[in-house]
Design a binder for these strands. Structure first.
Lengths: 193, 193
DNA sequence: CCTACCGATCGGTAGG
DNA sequence: CCTACCGATCGGTAGG
């Protein structure tokens, strides 16, 4: 399917070289078609971009959200730690999707700033909710110290954001894993009873 | 001075719209000259970009580093918290410099990936050193629990990275400040004796 | 999905 | 710092 190949290549190139840094001719060439072929499947460049961006965001959300349901048996500590592992897995499994999501959530091109902001806020709200549930559960069970849930959730989201950035600029797997472990270890010290 | 105006406008536009998303003609127009005038001051587009990127990175480093010297009288807690305030101040004071630094440290264009990586690693090492000093001091004074300095430093750097990202996608000042305060509060709970 | 094509704009140079 | 200019490439269309 040419359409899927186009989306695949577009996602990688947009993520790596940016929207303006990627020519439709490059995408077409890698797929093995001529540039005008793209217009048989997508309205224009913006449409192609938004399509792959949405799919990337969607697959990230789904991947993180699945865990929230899977792991309801686990302890609060394991669940929170599980979110971090899950995020890390997604980065490794789908580096193209990860890159385009991070890149354009932080630096949206002007023409779709609002659209992206909406999509992000929705995803952020969902994630926050899951995290707050894990935290509340942990507090009820007495493994998390009784304190503001918002405080704990904000700090955890900050931790996740930090790890997102670090994944992309620390190229070494070993260093990244140490950072991840250390960040969570410290978090847990502050959170646990 | 036309050269300074060119750098100023270039920094802002490169930060906002990206390298490929910014045409030399736009920069020239805002400054009030014609495109070829740029070549009287810079070799080419890459040279202009690297010049402003370097200056932005430099001013960030200097701003953060100055604090390390200023605040030697402060407690460990105040010093660490001071780094976060200082970073926040820089974002507010120099949004253009901040944006271009963050953008290109995480997503360098291919032609200067190595140069930027070097610059970043040097800056990262400096910052790590300052943080480790504050932590060690805190441990000696007994306000920070006796534990691995690397653990504490990694978690603190993670916190700073998270705040960097969040500054750019949470547009509300109030929310950002809450996130900052919460992130540090949790950090300090895990770190302190 | 292709060939043929186009207007607009890009970074950049010559010569002053 | 400007005018005049250029080759290359961009996103996109017509017509099949």
């Amino acid at each position: 399917m040419t359409k899927n190949k186009l989306k695949e290549v577009a996602m990688r190139l947009f993520g790596e070289k940016g929207y303006e840094g990627t020519a439709l001719s490059e995408i077409a060439k890698e797929v093995g078609v001529k540039t005008p072929a793209i217009y048989a499947f997508f309205e224009n460049k913006e449409d192609l971009f938004m399509t792959v961006f949405r799919e990337a965001m969607q697959s990230y959300n789904t991947y993180i959200q699945e865990l929230s349901e899977e792991q309801k048996v686990l302890s609060a500590q394991e669940s929170l730690r599980g979110i971090l592992s899950r995020q890390y897995e997604f980065y490794q499994k789908s580096p193209e999707a990860s890159k385009i999501v991070l890149r354009y959530v932080v630096f949206p091109p002007a023409f779709l700033k609002e659209t992206i902001e909406e999509a992000f806020l929705e995803s952020d709200a969902m994630l926050t909710k899951s995290i707050e549930q894990f935290i509340s559960k942990g507090m009820e069970e007495g493994v998390i110290r009784d304190q503001s849930v918002q405080l704990l959730a904000d700090a955890f989201l900050n931790l996740m954001d930090g790890l997102s950035m670090q994944y992309f600029y620390y190229t070494s797997k070993g260093i990244y894993e140490r950072k991840l472990n250390h960040a969570f270890e410290m978090y847990w010290k502050g959170a646990s009873s």
